[in-house]
Design a protein around this nucleic acid. Structure first.
Ligand SMILES: O=c1ccn([C@H]2C[C@H](O)[C@@H](COP(=O)(O)OP(=O)(O)OP(=O)(O)O)O2)c(=O)[nH]1
Ligand SMILES: [Mg+2]
Length: 910
DNA sequence: TCTCAGTAAGA
DNA sequence: TCTTAC
DNA sequence: GAGA
């Protein structure tokens, strides 16, 4: 038995052993991923230390990405005689490491790689591939690529005498491969000798000490640097001390990570409990789920961080920021400040670093009351004018040394002496400051430090100009729009204790506090989930003496840029009533559904967009040429369109929708309250039909049970006429409930009904008071719901209304007409001022909303059912939102505010 | 490499 | 935090 | 998956 055979056998065995354990999501792949994450954390920690000058370093990492630059630079260095910059040649180390693998391990083999794995990283695969090629082997990166080699089927079979390996990350791909091959009526075993999961292959190679994971982790680089005297500090003793410190830190920390991981690994061997999955069906499904979980986790991480950031920032604007309080600092403090301002990022590419070394024009800049270190490009010609503009900046954060001081000092910033000096020199030379620091007084010194090494590049359309260009006169007009306040909104706050209240009052914001009425019968009404005290206070409006919104620099430019490109947005083009390409959109929608199930956000957005674009066409696509130049339809989509035009279907969609799993999940997630995650969990428990689900109701929550109960009725769409009757019932009930003041309210059926669709999935009803909020009965929505329940219209309640910070309320329930089927009914109440935004939102369609909101976002606004706000997005984590919405009292005004043509509801069905 | 709408509720 | 919904 |  050859060496390779042995290794493969072990890898396969490992795979089989692990199949029993996979119920626990802590699989090896996940642990590898964790390891990478932690390595990244370590990296950023050390980067921070570098930034704080706790550790100085002066070397550059050479890796696969920077070899060319390295070679050039090396020649230059040696020509000059003295080596200026030192290198840690990680590439060499990696090559040495990979050389440890016996050269002829893959000799004369054919290897097909299917890569997506942390451990068998891309770099490593490249080196592998190189090695195999040098040993009379062959390497392919897809099965198609491999097939292209053959003219006849006979050739293919002959080739099998060689050892053909398929290395892939997980079992999904094997499944897919099988399907692909079945299209050619080929069996997997005919084509390929062995299929190896890369994860387990790597595991075996590691055990045999052929490969070492360390060279691909950050800590290894640090160790190397320390070993090679590449850390530089003034005193020799300190050098040694620091070197040792870093060495220890990295070794112990990375060792710790490895230990922890192996501990988790051994803990993760959990015996599967009996009701989980049948033995035979387990393997593929479980592994697919796990890799989905991992994908989802990665995505979820990004999403939640964005959400959190978004939540915080509104408070930032309203309650934390006060420019008046910026303090001046004495000369003494200025003297004390350290004179150092070189920021070198650790592992970025060589070119970037070179630029950083070379660039001396780092200056502080103040944008919208945040401080940045900026790079300013001087005298670039923009629209015929020579202008200085900001090309990139580093965000600054408050120095921790200030946290101990008393609160009055909290608006001091720190910037290094030399940068201030540069600024002052410019001012003294009577030049206009190239940045927006506003440091006119040399005593003014700020205590700020660099938040992260990452430099934020400013996109072309977002360049922040120092000087107003001709368009910027319009700022005054914008200003007018922004300072207008939305009247009639009340401030409502609920505090955990008086302290919170005081601290807010201190900041001179006037907040009117309305105690939440505690009517006797309130306790009996189920108002849903309790709000956590910690989350309070919530504000129904903004303080009525807000900072008048100042337009952000570059706003005119930004708006113009996106106005020129607005035909890329479906909200600007709209869709005709008729869909001329039903076949294509239906096929693409199949794929869309699959990707939504798999939680592949990117692809589902891409396919949704493609469907939207095709629906908006006012002609029938006859060939791909008709859609050749459309923005949003890329290569792959066009391929699929071509396929559909030629064969009448998309093969991939066909294969995917045929699979039992996908069909079951699709069916189960049609139950209200069950989404893709729950559906696939149910499928794992071998629940594949509604009947089976009805047998296992204990797995469902309250609303899901209701959804299941009325499943057959709810999956159906109702005819438009029935929706009309339901709306009339609601209006009738409302009139009976409030006979005197009913005409003070607008009651409008929105959703697909308002868009003029012939069938409606549900009834969406918007209620809006026409005059001020003060007169609105407190329990209007609850009363209405009780009334409709008495009338026999509403049968089940899914979601009770509860006032939120904007004074809007949402009800979701199930109702039916006499002798009719059960239908979903949504009631929403919005205060008068939100009428325009709410009507726009509730009319949809969902994709039209997304398109319009994206357009608003790009233009520097944020659009929702609560308003259109001006927003300055500094980076993906930081934004400043104006506390005052741009007033739009009708849909038309919202369109106008975004400089969009008004689209009547029937054109919004994208 | 980053982004993809924005908001809210239940468990 | 995760999932689902509009 | 597409676009920047
Ligand atoms: O993800 C979503 C879903 C819906 N909506 C808005 C637009 C939509 O028109 C309205 C009502 O939602 P519903 O789910 O009822 O959609 P619809 O457009 O009315 O279609 P259907 O006929 O399926 O009810 O809520 C969104 O903004 N985002
Ligand atoms: Mg609807």
């Amino acid at each position: 038995m050859s060496q390779l055979d042995q290794i493969l056998e072990e890898a396969v065995k490992k795979n089989e052993n692990n199949k029993r354990e996979v119920k626990n999501p802590l699989t090896k792949e996940m642990i590898q991923y964790q390891k990478v994450l932690e390595s990244q954390q370590l990296k950023s920690q050390i980067n921070q230390q570098h930034a704080k000058k706790e550790v100085k370093k002066e070397y550059i990492v050479i890796d696969e990405d920077s070899t060319d630059i390295y070679q050039q630079n090396k020649i230059q260095n040696t020509q000059n005689g003295s080596q200026k910059v030192k290198y840690v040649d990680i590439l060499k180390q990696r090559q040495e490491e990979i050389n440890k693998i016996p050269k002829d391990l893959f000799k004369s083999k054919i290897v097909i790689f299917f890569m997506r794995n942390f451990d068998l990283s891309e770099k490593r695969v490249k080196i592998f591939a190189e090695q195999i090629k040098n040993n009379q082997g062959e390497v392919y990166f897809s099965i198609q690529e491999y097939f292209e080699k053959f003219l006849t089927f006979y050739d293919l079979i002959q080739e099998k005498n060689k050892h053909i390996l398929f290395i892939c990350p997980d079992n999904i791909k094997i499944d897919e491969l099988r399907k692909q091959l079945s299209q050619y009526s080929l069996d997997l075993d005919v084509v390929i000798n062995k299929v190896v999961i890369s994860e387990y292959l790597v595991e075996v190679l590691k055990q045999k000490k052929y490969i070492n994971p360390e060279p691909y982790y950050f800590s290894y680089i640090n160790q190397l640097a320390a070993q090679n005297n590449l850390f530089h500090v003034g005193q020799q003793e300190e050098i040694n001390k620091e070197k040792q410190q870093i060495k220890n830190m990295n070794i112990s920390q990375s060792q710790q990570i490895i230990d922890e991981n192996s501990k988790q690994l051994s803990n993760s061997k959990v015996s599967s409990d009996e009701d989980s999955i049948q033995e035979n069906s387990l393997d593929l499904e479980c592994l697919t789920n796990i890799s989905r979980d991992i994908l989802r986790q990665r995505k979820m991480k990004q999403d939640t961080s964005r959400q959190k950031a978004a939540k915080k920032t509104r408070y930032l604007w309203d309650y934390n920021y006060d420019s008046e309080q910026e303090q001046q600092i004495s000369e003494d403090d200025l003297e004390k400040s350290q004179n150092s301002d070189k920021f070198v990022s650790f592992d970025s590419s060589f070119e970037q670093k070179k630029a950083e070394y070379a660039d001396q024009s780092i200056t502080p800049i103040k944008l919208d009351n945040q401080l940045f270190l900026s790079k300013v490009t001087e005298n670039e010609e923009i629209s015929g004018q020579k202008i200085n503009y900001l090309t990139s900046f580093k965000k600054l954060k408050r120095s921790p040394q200030l946290d101990n001081k008393n609160s009055q000092d909290q608006f001091l910033f720190k910037i290094s002496k030399s940068t201030i000096k540069k600024e002052q020199d410019l001012i003294q030379q009577n030049q206009t400051s190239p940045s927006k620091t506003g440091f006119k007084n040399k005593n003014q010194l700020d205590y700020f430090e660099v938040d992260s090494d990452q430099e934020i590049q400013i996109k072309d359309e977002q360049k922040y100009l120092d000087y107003l260009d001709e368009d910027d006169e319009d700022f005054s007009k914008i200003d007018q729009r922004f300072i207008t306040e939305l009247p009639n909104l009340k401030v409502e706050a609920k505090f955990k204790n008086d302290q919170q209240l005081k601290s807010l009052k201190k900041k001179d914001k006037i907040i009117e506090i309305i105690s939440l009425d505690s009517d006797e019968d309130e306790k009996e009404t189920n108002l849903g989930q309790q709000i956590n005290d910690q989350e309070q206070p919530k504000f129904v409006s903004q303080p009525n003496i807000g900072n008048p919104f100042k337009p952000f620099s570059g706003q005119i430019r930004r708006e113009r840029y996106w106005d020129e490109r607005k035909d890329h947005f479906i909200c600007a083009t709209g869709a005709p009533k008729e869909n001329f390409n039903k076949l294509i959109t239906e096929e693409l929608e199949k794929l869309l559904k699959i990707y939504q199930q798999e939680k592949d956000i990117g692809r589902s957005i891409a396919y949704r967009k493609a469907v939207g674009i095709i629906k908006s066409l006012d002609f029938q696509i006859k060939s791909v040429k008709d859609v050749q130049k459309i923005n949003g339809l890329g290569e792959k989509t066009k391929e699929k369109i071509k396929e559909i035009l030629e064969t009448g279907q998309c093969q991939r969609a066909q294969i995917l929708t045929q699979s039992e799993r996908n069909q079951a999940i699709e069916l189960l997630s049609q139950v209200w309250g069950i989404g893709p995650s729950t559906a696939s969990q149910l499928y794992e428990r071998n629940i594949k039909t509604i009947a089976e689900l009805r047998q296992n109701q204990h797995l469902l929550n309250k609303n899901q049970k209701i959804g299941l109960q009325y499943f057959e009725d709810l999956v159906e769409r109702m005819p438009r006429e029935e929706a009309t009757l339901i709306v009339n019932e609601v209006i009738k009930g409302f009139k009976e409930l409030y006979p005197e003041e009913h005409d003070r309210y607008d009651i409008i059926a929105c959703g697909s009904y308002r868009r003029g669709k012939e069938t409606c999935g549900d009834v969406d009803i918007l209620i809006c008071r026409k005059d001020g909020e003060e007169n609105k009965p407190k329990k209007l929505m609850i009363n209405l719901i009780c009334k409709l329940e008495q009338d026999g219209l509403l049968i089940e309640h899914l979601q009770f209304p509860r006032p939120n910070q904007y004074g809007s309320e949402t009800y979701m329930g199930i109702g039916k007409l006499k002798d009719g089927k059960h239908r979903r009914i949504d009631l929403k109440y919005y205060p008068k001022d939100l009428y325009g935004y709410a009507l726009l939102y509730f009319t949809g369609s969902d994709y039209f909303n997304r398109s319009m909101r994206l357009f608003a976002r790009k233009k520097g606004y944020s659009l929702s059912d609560h308003g259109l706000y001006a927003v300055n997005r500094i980076d993906n984590k930081t934004k400043i939102t104006s506390s005052l919405a741009i007033p739009c009292y009708t849909e038309e005004e919202v369109f106008a505010a975004l400089n969009l043509e008004y689209k009547p509801p029937y054109m919004r069905s994208v």
